[in-house]
Design a protein around this nucleic acid. Structure first.
Lengths: 174, 174
DNA sequence: TTAAGTGCAAAAGTTTTGCACCAAG
DNA sequence: CTTGGTGCAAAACTTTTGCACTTAA
């Protein structure tokens, strides 16, 4: 089973079990994700920059290869929020997945949890004979500010609402 | 409100209302989606090829611009199933969204409906002051065949299970 | 010691854009 | 008419890959 929190040792055994190796690069990459405040997700380039800032120098190829590997085995999850590139975050063990509501105009993202949805996801996976890796509800909408500004026709496609700085993610359950 | 089925006239009014124009190109593109068997989704290039086969010749740029426009206003929905490029399909009016279960190994996709999920999506959107456009649960997993073959380490990343030809999508509700 | 992983640079895609021309409202 | 849309070709990105070299197990 995948862990909620990884140590070098538990990461190693998760990798070795599957025939992969623990390398310093993989350890550093996972470390970045583990220190990331809840609700943040990183693109390959974000991650590469963070590592660069820390004085590490992994190649961008390794970053991509590692993200793919970790998503494939379920340590990370791929989040697609229509910004034109993939984002990744730690994949919390079932049933602690969270979900995303995103404004198609300003890309402001609201995170929320809903255990029922995770349960439905698991049930559907089982019914189809799949081993569940990740389950995410993505809601696309338009935020109030954009609507007020006359969305969609009166807004340039790069318009962002003033609130988009403050993050509305609050984990509120419905 | 967006339509379940578009005629040239209703498409025109949906576009005009928002300050956009009805062009022959947009009409043809939407027509392709409307004739598409339920459960199929197209990439920009797929769509461009279908149009080419029909003897139309729209530029690929127009295809991309139209897909973006229609997704932005909610006529189409963007579906991201980790094949490396976006797919599009008609966005059915609430609460008729369907959802996807996909094998990360072979990309076999199972479609399913669940009205409860759509309702939860709407509730969450409203609670956050968003106008709902689309709401999709995406479940990532590993199919039985891949597990049997020793997923993840013993499989080349392009391995596909024998069943992937037959489509398991059956619209079964849980 | 040997199969897997890394770095680099090049390639492969996909998607976006600038600009001149065309056409819907 | 006036503003938005199209086509073309070029550019911009993101992501993947081939290959020689390292290194974990």
């Amino acid at each position: 089973m995948l862990k909620a929190v990884y140590t070098a040792t538990s990461l190693k055994s998760d990798l070795n079990q599957r025939g992969f190796r623990l390398t310093p690069q993989r350890e550093k990459i996972l470390d970045v994700f583990q220190r990331l405040p809840q609700g943040n997700h990183l693109s390959a380039e974000d991650l590469h920059n963070i590592l660069k800032d820390r004085g590490e120098r992994l190649s961008l190829s390794t970053v991509y290869r590692t993200l793919n590997l970790m998503a494939r085995i379920g340590i990370l999850r791929e989040v697609e929020l229509a910004e034109g590139h993939k984002h990744y975050e730690i994949n919390p063990p079932y049933p602690n997945h969270h979900h995303h509501l995103v404004c198609v105009q300003c890309h402001r993202t609201v995170e929320f949890k809903n255990e029922l949805i995770s349960k439905l996801g698991l049930k559907q996976a089982e019914a189809s004979g799949f081993h569940l890796l990740d389950c995410q509800l993505t809601i696309y909408g338009v935020c109030l500010e954009a609507l007020r500004q006359g969305w969609p026709s009166l807004l340039p496609s790069d318009w962002s609402c003033p609130h988009s700085g403050l993050d509305m993610a609050d984990g509120t359950d419905l």
